[in-house]
């Protein structure tokens, strides 16, 4: 025995991982992964989707079928990630208060920062696992369809007597819309976006004990953050007179406070078949860590000495 009192470290990854694990389990028990069944059905439905009855016309028709599959399935993934990011984070603190888990945790030597970070990581883990499962299925469906489209289009091209370089160009065009690293980068960006909005929801939920308030406020932040940067650029390019000065100022203030979700639009570009450079993904990773860091520290600031 020693006289020295037990000291709790300011931040412990081990504690955080335990809380994250239990949060993940808590959310899984809410039957969140049933959504994967919807995704599977959607994927099968997309697989059975008939071709648009074009008899001739744009040569990029084969790629359109692949894009349709991608846009629908990635669209679902985005809804899954963003809605889950907001709703599950909004539920966490009120649910812990309601079933008194929060008191049990905080009565132990667990700093509130660990609690918040653990909760956030639990949500992110849930989104990550969900997205990973969906990505696997998407890759399988897309790869299978790409092979079908490729065979069909190359057969047509050969029947039409295209030369080898034209056939090679057609093949490259179709493969660009299959499973690519850029598509994976787009999905990673989607995960980042969900992470940022989850961190925003965490911040809002430290103020409010109402789940509905947190969900609505976070959703508003998401929508405002998706277009406010465009507004800022528009107002910056206008000559401001009279009332417009106020509008311009308001746009500036809002764009300073809200995260710029427009940057995560690369997911859409990846679905469209564009190439995502690694450098851009790296910068996006940097700003995502920055956003999440800011909102988590502010959440801690609010929650640190909050009476519960």
């Amino acid at each position: 025995m020693t006289d020295e009192p037990n000291r709790t470290s300011f931040f412990s990854p081990a504690r955080v991982s335990v809380i994250a694990g239990s949060t993940f389990t808590q959310l899984v028990r809410m039957k969140v992964f049933y959504l994967l069944l919807v995704f599977v059905m959607l994927a099968i439905g997309m697989h059975l989707l008939p071709d648009l009855p074009h008899t001739s016309g744009p040569e990029a028709l084969g790629a359109e079928k692949l894009r349709m599959i991608k846009s629908t399935l990635v669209g679902f993934m985005k809804l899954f990630a963003v809605i889950l990011g907001i709703v599950s984070t909004a539920l966490l603190i009120p649910r812990d208060l309601e079933d008194r888990t929060l008191y049990t945790i905080l009565s132990k030597p667990v700093p509130r920062l660990d609690y918040l970070v653990g909760k956030l990581l639990g949500v992110l883990l849930l989104i990550f696992v969900g997205l990973a499962a969906m990505t696997l299925l998407l890759s399988f469906v897309l790869h299978y369809q790409t092979e079908l489209v490729l065979t069909e289009r190359i057969t047509i091209a050969e029947r039409l007597g295209w030369d080898q370089d034209a056939i090679a160009a057609e093949r490259a065009e179709i493969l660009r819309h299959g499973v690519t690293w850029s598509l994976m980068a787009g999905i990673v960006a989607l995960f980042f976006e969900a992470g940022v909005i989850a961190a925003v929801a965490l911040l809002v939920s430290t103020f409010s004990s109402s789940t509905i308030f947190t969900v609505v406020t976070s959703s508003l932040v998401y929508f405002i953050g998706s277009f406010i940067a465009d507004g800022r650029e528009y107002w910056l390019n206008q000559s401001a007179v009279g009332d417009e000065v106020l509008v311009r100022l308001a746009a500036q203030v809002l764009s300073v406070i809200f995260p710029d979700f427009r940057l995560y639009g690369i997911t859409d570009a990846a679905v469209g078949g564009d190439t995502i450079p690694l450098g851009i993904l790296a910068k996006l990773t940097g700003i995502t860590v920055m956003y999440i860091g800011i909102y988590t520290v502010l959440s801690w600031f609010v929650f640190a000495d909050k009476e519960i």
Partner: peptide, 19 residues
Amino acid sequence: KLPLEQRIASDLREARLLP
């Protein structure tokens, strides 16, 4: 964060990835 956001937006615009 604003300059960083603007720099990334500018990169995205250059790569024609910005909606």
